[in-house]
Design a protein around this nucleic acid. Structure first.
Lengths: 168, 168
DNA sequence: GGCGCTATCGCAACCGAATTCGATTGCTCA
DNA sequence: TGAGCAATCGAATTCGGTTGCGATAGCGCC
């Protein structure tokens, strides 16, 4: 069951379900995974990872860089990217390439979800829909292929932008 | 009804339906659209557009450049990109950004479809599935948003690669 | 057909996002 | 505490794609 204020359902669509994993737990996992691979925990990596886990969803490398700079001004761009790659390899973040420009990064939660992106304000809404997931598996069977992952992105105008336009 | 050899259905999934529009018709449309917009038809544009329409699906700028060079060695990369942009503005091609690297271009057909991409051999299979399209509209209604377009890409291993692996 | 306007061409320089390189720093564990 | 090697910094490089500019060539008009 989703906790109050974290997500809700409309019809068969579940919106914005937040993962229950805390930033602390994620940091611990990060340290464990690093150790497993014979890599080091360093101040910079911790700063970057912490800012990332605290911020949460759909941050870009540039935004992350700016945030980390506030805490630790001596961190370079290259280290941001290296740490993002590391977090990806540790299965702690997803890299998303939405339509234009740079990649956005998202902490790995326990559930799969897809995205709606507002073309006017850039807002990103996460949702789950089990029926679509099922249909994708059926398509895969029909095509005779094995699925490893998928990407579904809906683009359009969100309700806020819709209302803003009407009141203009 | 799809013409034999052009597409087929499995379950509710329609695979690889080819558009019925000929390269000649597309060239004519291109010339018309250019004229409408006060732009010129040139040798280079014709060469590029013709190669693109003949080749058809999911070509990259680099591949297109190589093909055009065979016919007209004096065409530059910039002209390829400028002509691709022009074809897009004339609503004669779609630009697709699959997972990694450069964009791939596809002639506009009369039907919407989605894509499966083989992660091993890069093969791209087009398919349609009406149920998924309907579900997307339901999700949009649930989210309270208006849809302008969507992107759905399935990634995995195609049957050919599956068999190749088993016989190794 | 020839004139002239102006869009287009090809080249090279450039752009933004991301990665790599070489020299230096600083963890970590004995 | 110090050896050894991974991690860091910042600049330079890569990659896909775009743009500025002088030269060229469509196309409408006579």
């Amino acid at each position: 069951m989703p906790r109050p204020g974290e997500s809700h359902s409309v019809g068969h669509t579940v919106i914005d379900r937040k993962p229950a994993i805390s930033a602390e737990q994620r940091m611990l996992t990060f340290h464990t995974r690093l150790k497993e691979r014979g890599l080091k925990s360093t101040g910079q990596r911790d700063d970057i990872a912490r800012v990332f886990f605290d911020h949460g969803h759909h941050i870009s490398a540039e935004e992350l860089y700016a945030e980390v700079k506030k805490i630790n001004p001596h961190v370079g761009y290259a280290t941001i990217y290296r740490t993002l790659r590391l977090l990806k390899e540790c299965a702690l973040l997803y890299e998303r390439h939405f339509d234009e420009g740079q990649a956005r990064y998202e902490a790995v939660g326990e559930r799969h979800h897809d995205h709606f992106i507002c073309e006017r304000c850039g807002r990103i809404i996460e949702f789950e829909n089990a029926a679509i997931e099922r249909m994708q598996n059926i398509v895969a069977r029909d095509l005779g292929v094995t699925l490893t992952r998928h990407k579904m992105e809906l683009y359009g105008i969100c309700s806020d932008c819709h209302h803003a336009q009407q009141s203009m």
